[in-house]
Amino acid sequence: MDDIAVLANPGAGRGRHRGVFSAVLDRLGSRGGTVRLLEAGSAEDAEKVCHRAVADGVGALVAVGGDGTLHRALQAVAGTDVGFGVVPAGTGNDFAAGTGVPAHPLLAAEEIAVAREAGRHRPIDLARIETPQGDVRWFGAVLAAGFDAIVNERANRLRWPRGPRRYDLAIMLEAVRLRPRRYTLDLDGVDHSFTGVLAAVGNCASYGGGLRICPAADPADGLLDVVVAAPLGRVALARLQPRVRRGTHVDDPLITSYRARRVRIDTPGIVGYADGERVAALPLEIGCVPGAVRLLR
């Protein structure tokens, strides 16, 4: 059997799965094939080594880590016939959860090994982003383009505190400045422009480690789910936050949901975040590409 290239981030999820990392690699190769660990010193290097592995004809590419690690690997495997495996080991494992991958790393690794031996894969949709500069990015879970993206941007600029508390501080700082924006939103050629504070485009249901922002999203239906929020004050936003984790916020009259094959979204001053990773400033064109990745499961 062909080589299995593995992009891994042992420090993902604050290292809580570091102890089973060697066992994951053993399990991946338990049914044949040579497991090759890709070495990368940065996110940019990670993408380069994944692209090189795919270009060299690797049999499968496996991402071990959270959604950030997965996002880097997807850039190389999307649209190819290379099998793709996901071993969830991060703080947020939203793509894995949305595609039914076992939550335990060893079970996920075993499922990949079995699928490779059987020659089995599941076609999964991906979202393809096009920027005005002509750059292309892929994502598997959700693109944030509203208040949540602003919080990510602020958190990335903070040097203190570290860990989840940095995001708590970013939320507090940005909530004070919360204001509605005018969004241009085009769905399959139909204008749905609105004024509001939130816009999310989902291939899967959740982001941020289980926040079900697009609860009805199905990564195998050929469509993207789009969820937008009308103008909200700080109190209304705080009231909706716990409902987002359950996915019941979409029943609120201030929330509107759509489905589309192609989305164009724009508003000044927002940088989009996909799979928790910084992508580019709006405007962005997002299209659903059915079966863009061959998920080994």
Rank of each mutant, 00 (worst) to 15 (best):
G85R: 00
N93W: 13
G92N: 07
A89S: 15
L106E: 04
V77A: 09
A89D: 08
G98I: 08
G79W: 11
P105R: 12
G83C: 13
N93V: 03
G90R: 00
D81T: 15
P102A: 06
A97M: 11
G85H: 10
P102F: 10
V77W: 00
V101S: 00
G90H: 10
T91N: 08
V86Q: 13
A103R: 15
T99Y: 13
P88M: 10
G98V: 09
V86W: 07
A89Y: 00
G79D: 13
D94G: 15
F84A: 03
A96T: 02
H104M: 13
A103C: 12
G79T: 11
P102G: 13
L106A: 06
F95S: 05
V101G: 02
F84N: 04
P88R: 12
L106Y: 05
V101N: 04
T99N: 10
T80P: 00
V82N: 11
F95C: 09
G85F: 06
A76T: 09
G98L: 01
G100I: 12
A76W: 11
G90S: 04
V77F: 07
A103Y: 00
H104Q: 14
T91H: 08
N93A: 06
V82K: 02
V87R: 03
P105M: 09
G79Y: 06
T99V: 15
N93K: 05
A89V: 05
G79M: 01
D81A: 15
D94Y: 13
P102H: 13
V77E: 04
T91S: 15
A89E: 11
V77K: 01
G83S: 13
A78P: 01
G98Q: 07
G79V: 08
T91F: 09
A103H: 15
G83R: 13
G79F: 10
G83N: 05
V82D: 06
L106T: 05
G83E: 07
H104A: 14
P88T: 08
D81Q: 15
G85N: 07
T99R: 04
G100L: 13
G92R: 00
T80W: 02
T99D: 06
F84Q: 07
A78C: 08
A76H: 11
G83P: 09
T91A: 15
G79E: 07
T80D: 08
P102Q: 02
N93D: 11
A78Y: 01
A76P: 08
D94C: 12
T91K: 01
G85W: 03
F95R: 09
A96Y: 02
V82E: 03
T91D: 02
T99W: 12
G100S: 15
F95I: 10
P88Q: 09
L106V: 07
V82H: 00
F95L: 15
T80Q: 04
V86E: 09
H104D: 15
T91Y: 09
G98F: 09
G98Y: 08
G92P: 06
A78G: 05
F95N: 01
T99I: 15
G79I: 05
P88S: 11
G100K: 14
D81G: 14
G98M: 06
V82P: 01
P102N: 04
V87Q: 10
V77G: 00
A103F: 07
V86P: 14
G100T: 14
H104T: 02
T99A: 14
F95A: 01
P102M: 03
F84E: 07
V101H: 02
G85S: 00
A89C: 14
A78T: 10
H104L: 11
D94M: 12
P105A: 07
F84I: 10
A76E: 07
G90K: 04
G85Y: 10
A103W: 00
A78K: 06
